[in-house]
């Protein structure tokens, strides 16, 4: 069984990323289950997608200390989900922080770098992705989810190849977004390999 947590902020596209993982795994004849955050929390709140790939899966929720991989769409959200990670699990995280309004109002001075430092000292296998060059190359900030997915696939965490995810993107995304997302996927994969 492979357990995966995708943690981010509402609007970052965690649901689509988790669906693409699940769809690709299913295409390979695996059994999958996911649990999504949909509704009120999506408005800028914390969102977590659970994806489980295996033979016999009961719960759609990943138990604590059971995730093989956490894909952090934002540094603090990766830290928040860390209790899900297995001892030997891997964390793939975007470097770019998102500062909530509450932080500016309360002057709590949240900095993503502090979270990344914490991850560096607490996670054995950590891949930090600088998403800015990928955004620049793709001409959009809306490709974060796919870039991280590319990084995760390249790191070999799901037993799914990059080519297999490419095929899912080609089949499942609207025609006009395919080229941009394939570019982001490959860019994410390349960054992960360099790390």
């Amino acid at each position: 069984m492979i357990n995966c947590i995708l943690a981010g902020v509402g609007g970052q596209g965690t649901v689509l990323a988790s669906k693409l993982i699940a769809q690709t795994a299913m295409g390979k004849g695996k059994n999958v289950r996911t649990a999504e955050t949909i509704g009120m929390a999506q408005r800028g709140g914390c969102v977590v997608s659970h994806v489980r790939i295996g033979e016999e899966i009961h719960s759609p929720l990943v138990p604590l200390r059971s995730a093989d991989v956490i894909i952090g769409f934002e540094p603090a959200e990766a830290v928040r989900s860390l209790p899900y990670l297995k001892e030997e699990g891997i964390v793939i995280v975007s470097q770019k922080d998102i500062k909530p309004v509450t932080d500016s109002l309360a002057n709590t001075n949240y900095e993503g770098t502090e979270m990344l430092d914490y991850l560096k000292s607490h996670v054995k296998r950590l891949i930090i992705i600088d998403v800015e060059p990928i955004f620049a190359a793709c001409g959009s900030t809306r490709v974060l989810n796919i870039a991280l997915l590319g990084a995760a696939a390249a790191a070999g965490v799901f037993d799914i190849s990059l080519a297999e995810i490419e095929r899912t993107i080609e089949h499942k995304l609207p025609q006009q977004f395919i080229a941009m997302n394939l570019k982001a996927l490959r860019a994410g994969a390349k960054t992960a390999i360099k790390e």
């Binding site: 902020v9 509402g10 408005r43 500062k99 709590t108 914490y118």
Partner: peptide
């Protein structure tokens, strides 16, 4: 664990 930013849903 460091203090995490509070992230309630917002407009």
């Amino acid at each position: 664990m460091p203090a995490l930013p509070v992230r309630p849903p917002v407009l």
